[in-house]
């Protein structure tokens, strides 16, 4: 029994307020989106989703998010490794810089990428001369996604590497294993859970990203229009049902991922 919440009289009011706040702020809006997208019948939902601009935006988002996630898992694992295992000047600074994309407003992140890679910039001009197009094309979206999801994999892998008992590695070496083998058999398996859960978090964040992407993507339907920007456009053009339909798909995907992560973490805790 909790001594803290026992103050008579107040108790009931407090409990109701808190739970109501919770339900009204979180649960009701989510249900509202599902309700709205199906409010005009299932066929309207299908119609809204089968609009080529809509489903192409979803597919494009998925494709780009997968690319961004793969790159992020590779880069993130490497950086986590370097930041934990090696000692070098500037290490502490880099370690705190990891969180900067979390702290920075996403719109600012988008602007930064736009300025760096934009048509007037050095890199932009260089790429143009080589025949690449970055800003307002798909590479820019991937870069924006990588930028905003940058910390996830690093922060998921670091604690696992820190916990890894060096004696396990040493034992493998004393048994004559070569370092590539030790890496594959000892180090990689212990980093894998972090790579997976960090990767999934990054993926779901990349799916949802709006601020950074909207500034650097050209938002051309079917080519550079991702779903979150599509939803925004639908809201702007006063078509909330169409927005809700795509939202439902995106939401369901994200919840699925969240649920998977929870499942993974629970399994990890048990073993």
């Amino acid at each position: 029994m909790n001594s803290l919440l026992r103050h008579k009289g107040w108790t009931w009011g407090f409990r109701t307020t808190i739970l109501l706040y919770f339900v009204v702020l979180i649960v009701l809006p989510i249900l509202g989106v599902y309700y709205n997208s199906f409010s005009l019948g299932f066929s309207t939902f299908i119609e809204a989703v089968s609009d080529p601009i809509a489903w192409k935006s979803v597919l494009l988002t998925l494709k780009l998010a997968v690319i961004a996630t793969v790159i992020n898992v590779l880069l993130g694992t490497m950086i986590a490794w370097v930041l934990i295992r090696y000692r070098f000047p500037g290490k502490a600074l880099l370690n705190s810089l990891v969180d900067l994309p979390f702290a920075l407003p996403t719109a600012v992140g988008g602007l930064m990428i736009l300025l760096l890679l934009g048509p007037g910039s050095l890199i932009g001009r260089l790429a143009e001369r080589l025949g690449f197009e970055i800003v307002f094309h798909q590479p820019a979206i991937v870069i924006a996604m990588i930028f905003v999801t940058f910390p996830f994999v690093i922060r998921a892998v670091q604690p696992l590497l820190e916990e890894l008992d060096p004696s396990e590695e040493e034992a493998a070496y004393t048994m004559g294993a070569r370092s590539s083998r030790v890496f594959r058999r000892v180090i990689l398996p212990s980093m894998a859970p972090g790579m997976i859960s960090g990767g999934m978090l990054a993926f779901s964040r990349a799916l949802a990203e709006f601020g950074a992407v909207v500034l650097v993507a050209g938002n051309i339907p079917g080519r550079t229009l991702v779903s979150s920007v599509f939803i925004f456009g639908e809201v702007e053009s006063d078509n909330p049902v169409g927005a809700a339909a795509v939202s439902v798909i995106l939401l369901t995907l994200s919840f699925l991922i969240l649920w998977l992560i929870n499942l993974l973490q629970m399994r990890g805790r048990r073993s």
């Binding site: 989510i30 989106v33 949802a208 920007v229 939202s247």
Partner: peptide, 9 residues
């Protein structure tokens, strides 16, 4: 898990 745009929507 909810995209901010969807949160606004």
């Amino acid at each position: 898990a909810v995209s901010p745009v969807i949160g606004g929507l």
